[in-house]
Amino acid sequence: MEEVKEQVISLPRLSEPAPAFEAPTTHGVLKLEDFKGSWLILFSHPADFTPVCTTEFIAFAEIYPELQKRGVELLGLSVDSVSSHIAWVRNVEEKTGVKVPFPVIADLSKEVSLAYGMIHPGQSKTETVRCVFIIDPNQIIRTILYYPLTTGRNMQEILRIIDALQTTDEHKVATPANWKPGDMVVVPPPNTQEMAEERLKQGYECVDWYLCKKKL
């Protein structure tokens, strides 16, 4: 019971600095600060040589070129050894032809898993659930997704979130439900009555003063 309490306390939150770490990976020992200046997707999977995780690794490898175009690096994690990770990614390449180009943390100590709240004892006491932490170039957590052990992640949604976050940062706008690049974006709501009245004269597509969209 005490173990569960500790894990809940350490859950990170949006818009807070990502917990620092130094961890062994398939690309050597990496620190969070090594990624400063790049976007980073830190994701966990339950275990090497398991079926859903294998489909996810193939899918992450497939979107890697698209992520690179957006200045995003990928970093996987599970509570397995470096040797196990190496054997698994080599097996994936041998059996499917897909090379896994990103590093994978071997978190046998669970230090990173606990710092990021990746172990949910209701799902598994020893394995990490399917977490996704999107960390910006200033190392601030911008998005957190949790998926259960049985549900593989949707790569297009992860790409969509990256596009939405980068659009928000560049243009100071929000993105509506089901937004995708090229769609209209939401203009931030006005803070005063005067601004609300002015908003309706600015040529935006408005449902009312609090919901206006524009093309970029």
Binding site: H27, V29, L30, D34, G37
Partner: peptide
């Protein structure tokens, strides 16, 4: 090389 590889490599 990716910048993270260079930073960790320079440490080594």
């Amino acid at each position: 090389l990716p910048i993270f590889r260079v930073r960790s490599g320079l440490r080594e």
